[in-house]
């Protein structure tokens, strides 16, 4: 599940804000507040781009209802094809 402050959510929110500002239905104070919120998301998004580290998890159990951090096996290719 993407976190509340994840890049995708922030980008979606900025897009929504831009859409609101373009729609000309906003009170001026609200427009300013939206703009500031958008700028905040932009800054944070840029930070995420610069500092993010990939998170790999594994869904396990018969029903796939348990999540644990994925540990890459030392050697692969046991039952997979050759690399492409």
């Amino acid at each position: 599940m993407p976190s509340e402050g994840g890049l995708d959510r922030r980008l979606k929110r900025i897009e929504d804000i831009v859409a609101s500002l373009d729609s000309d239905e906003v009170d001026l104070d609200e427009a300013l507040a939206l703009f500031e919120e958008g700028v905040g998301h932009l800054r944070r998004a840029q930070q995420i781009l610069e500092t993010a580290e990939l998170k790999v998890e594994e869904l396990i159990g018969a029903q796939g209802d348990e999540v644990r951090e994925f540990e890459a096996p030392d050697q692969g290719d046991r039952d997979d094809g050759d690399r492409d």
Partner: peptide, 28 residues
Amino acid sequence: TSPTGAALRDVIAVARRRAPWVRVLVRG
């Protein structure tokens, strides 16, 4: 995919290079 396969290694490598902010969830 296979949790031990080259395919998964390739996918993870691409994710790390292109979009390290995403969460990769593997079902082996």
